[in-house]
Each structure stands twice: as structure tokens, then as C-alpha cells.
Design a protein around this nucleic acid. Structure first.
Ligand SMILES: [Mn+2]
Ligand SMILES: [Mn+2]
Ligand SMILES: [Mn+2]
Ligand SMILES: [Mn+2]
Lengths: 220, 220
DNA sequence: AATAATTTTTAGATTTACCTAAAAATAAAA
DNA sequence: TTTTATTTTTAGGTAAATCTAAAAATTATT
């Protein structure tokens, strides 16, 4: 059984490992909003418990056991987010912090029944995949909106940025999950992208376009 | 903002204060499954924070602020229990431990929306009243089943014992919340009570009858 | 290869929530 | 009203998770 804090470290390491192979002390510290010295302390403990492999000065990697634990927390986090949006009518930019707390509730039965109650969802309100109870993810095929060419179309199925500011911005532009879009122009000057959504033309910056994930349904 | 532990102390003190006016250190220790010395430490802290009034060797009482905090936790606990039973199909004897964890999730918005989602319930799965968001309880008029005379009838609206063993026993006898009952006999020998429920006759011990709460609907 | 910069670890403290054992206060019994 | 029993508090310590400041290891730059 892991403490609340240990669980958060494992989850952080898991997410960092999605980007870089070798997860470093400073990166963990930044993500956890703590100091590198504290991270070193916790890293030793997690290594002692067999949850991570650790060589001094060389960063850490999750063991099988550690990875399973992390995935389980990710599963809980995302299921709770679905609950908050689908059942309690929270907006997609309001759910993360509450889910950060709910993900630590320790009851297998609870999460099984919640999963069923929600209809075994495959993705959370941000399009992130929800692993099943065995830790398996349905594999998804995303492409960044920025990579689409003029004329390409697709469906918004995820975002790779979860800040409230970003999500509210998308909401305002009508760019929500499930929306059908088509790229109508790419501005030479600043690389901003003009897209067609629900019969409207909207212009989004390169920065925004980078963080919208599209499941492509055909090029032109 | 209180810690998880502080919240549990406040809730324990609140519940003990329902029974005795002056809540003693040993009683708190027993309830919290900890040692009196630890209770003294925490009591000092809560007094410093203005959540309880404390005179050395004289026990404690909740301040207005402390009482409000405690009631808020009771509210959350009971709402989550309703959620678990009504939405996730838990049985009434399975919800308490999970609710003990859920009650500490800190989000006013969450509990407001949960309350609404559940249809603003007035009682939890054990018949315990749920305070509204201002901490006010709908006043209820219970009488213990043991106090009924032969011929008296009423509706089961609560239990004053929450152990899984007791609740499962009632379940097996068909004595669940909302059931209409009538006392048909009281045995001289052991004081056990014979009651009529859903066209069946069941015999329950004095001990069981003491912990079933009835909203009386007329004597005979 | 030597020096400088960066990253990571150790050393030594702090805070929270516990504990045991012993002392002090209060309550009950003789 | 002493004596005894019970309750409560203090004294002193432990473990988890954090911190700052300084030392050590690694990596990058001349
Ligand atoms: Mn999230
Ligand atoms: Mn998410
Ligand atoms: Mn309960
Ligand atoms: Mn209850």
C-alpha cells in the first residue's frame, strides 16, 4: 500500500517517462512543485519498495510494479474526470484539481462500479485514453492539428494541454471534443491556421493548433 | 483549512457530543483508535485554531466554527453514502469505509453538484439525516422499535447501529428502510419482538429491536 | 585535459501525527 | 478525609515528508 504522496510521485514519473526515457530528479521536482533534495529522499524510498529502478545520478525508471500502480492512478483520475463532466456537469477545464484528490481513494470495488456506471468510457473529457482494469490502453491514432494541410479534415479527439486558460479558449471558439473540422487556410505571415467548424470560420494560432489532436478522416 | 486528521477528530467530537455533553479525552481516543496522549496533543492544536473550547482535565466542546466544520464533514459523508447506494449499487452495509475517505475531498462545488445530482436527499442509506449546505438538519421524529406496544405499526426509517453484521442481518430478515411493520407480539421469556413485515412474521431479539428506528404512524 | 556550469546528493533541521512511560490532577472508595 | 483508582497530561522520542545550505558527481565549455 502506497501513501498519497508516493502515489503522486509514481504518477509524475510515469507521465515524465512518456516524454523522456530517463526521468531526472530536477524534472520530478519541478512537476511535484518541490525541491530536488526532497525528490532524492522519496526516490530512495520508492527504490527500496521495488517501485522504481534507481542508479545514483542517473535518474529513475518505473519497475513493472511501479508502472502498474501509476497506471491504476491514471485510470482513477480519468474515470473521475468523466464522472464530473458527464454526471455532475462540470466543464472540462474545472475537473482536474478535484480528480487529483479523488484518484487517491482506495477501493477497487468503487472504481469498478464507477467504470460501469459511466458506461466503460475509453477516453476522459480531454481525450486522454482510460486504461481498463488490467492496465491496457485502447490504442489511439492522433495527429496534431498543426500537421494538417489545407483541405484536410478530421474530428477533434483530444488536447495535449490541460490548462484552464487553454481549454476555456477552445470552448469559446467552439472547438470541443467530437467537433468536425476542416483546414481552410494556413497564413504565411504567422503560421496561424484557419479552420471550418460548425459552419463557422475560426482562426487559431500555431501554438493552439499544436495542442489540438485530430483523428484524421481523409485528406483531399 | 484543516488536515484530514483534524477533520476526523472534529467529526468524532461532534458525534460523541450527541451522546454526552462533556467530551472526554479517553472517549475520543477510543473512537479514533489512538492513545489518550495523542488526543491531548491534537486537542491543544484544535483549541489553538479556535475549533474547540478546552479546559485541562475538563474535556472539550466544539466552538461554533468547529461545529460547522464537523457538520460539513457529516454532510459529505452521508451524501457520498447515498451516491454509493443509489448510483453505484453498493449495499447499505458496504458504504461506510469508502465514505470515510470521500468525506475529506475538499471542493464545495463538488458537494453542491453531487447533492443536486442525488436529488437533494434528506437522509442517508441508514436513515441518518443529511444537513443542508447551511448545516441545518430537517428535524425527524423517531421512536425505537423496542418501545412499540403490541398492535403498534410504523415505517422503518433508520438504524442506530451501523455494523455490517447488524445491517446484513436486517437485510436477511427483510427489514430495510421504508418497510411498513406492525408489532404482533412481545415474548415474555426473552423480550424478543414478533413483527409483521411484507406479509411475513419475523422474530427479532430485544437487542435488534433497540436499534431499529420507526416513524410511528398511529397506535391501536 | 582543465575549468566552469549544472545536476544531484548529503547533512542537518522542521513539522505533523503518532507512540510509551511517568507524573499530575480528578474522582471514587474506604 | 485519607487512600486508592481512574483519567489526563507532560516528557521525551519516532517516522514521514518536507526544507536550506553545502558537498559531490556529472556534463559542458574552453
Ligand atoms: Mn486531469
Ligand atoms: Mn484529463
Ligand atoms: Mn457511515
Ligand atoms: Mn450512514
Amino acid at each position: 500500500m502506497q501513501s498519497y504522496t508516493e502515489e503522486n510521485y509514481l504518477k509524475t514519473i510515469y507521465h515524465l517517462a512518456e516524454k523522456t526515457t530517463n526521468v531526472q530528479t530536477n524534472a520530478i521536482a519541478e512537476q511535484m512543485q518541490t525541491k530536488p533534495a526532497s525528490v532524492t529522499d522519496m526516490i530512495k524510498k520508492l527504490a527500496d519498495k521495488g517501485l522504481i529502478d534507481y542508479i545514483k545520478y542517473q535518474g529513475v525508471t518505473l519497475t513493472e510494479k511501479g508502472k502498474n500502480t501509476a497506471i491504476d492512478i491514471v485510470r482513477k483520475h480519468r474515470l473521475w474526470e468523466v464522472f464530473l463532466v458527464d454526471k455532475l456537469n462540470f466543464k472540462w477545464d474545472e475537473v482536474h484539481d478535484v480528480a487529483e484528490e479523488l484518484e487517491h481513494i482506495k477501493s477497487i470495488e468503487l472504481i469498478e462500479r464507477l467504470d460501469e456506471f459511466l458506461g466503460f468510457p475509453k477516453a476522459d473529457p480531454h481525450g486522454d485514453p482510460i486504461p481498463d482494469k488490467n492496465g491496457r490502453f485502447a490504442k489511439t491514432q492522433f495527429i496534431k492539428l498543426i500537421e494538417l494541410k489545407v483541405g484536410d479534415s478530421g474530428t477533434i479527439t483530444g488536447v495535449s494541454q490541460h490548462s484552464s486558460a487553454f481549454l476555456k479558449h477552445l470552448e469559446k471558439l467552439g472547438l470541443t471534443l467530437g467537433k468536425q473540422i476542416q483546414v481552410s487556410d494556413v497564413t504565411d505571415f504567422d503560421g496561424s491556421v484557419e479552420i471550418q467548424v460548425s459552419d463557422k470560420q475560426v482562426n487559431i494560432s500555431r501554438e493552439v493548433a499544436k495542442h489540438i489532436l485530430i483523428s484524421s478522416n481523409g485528406k483531399n
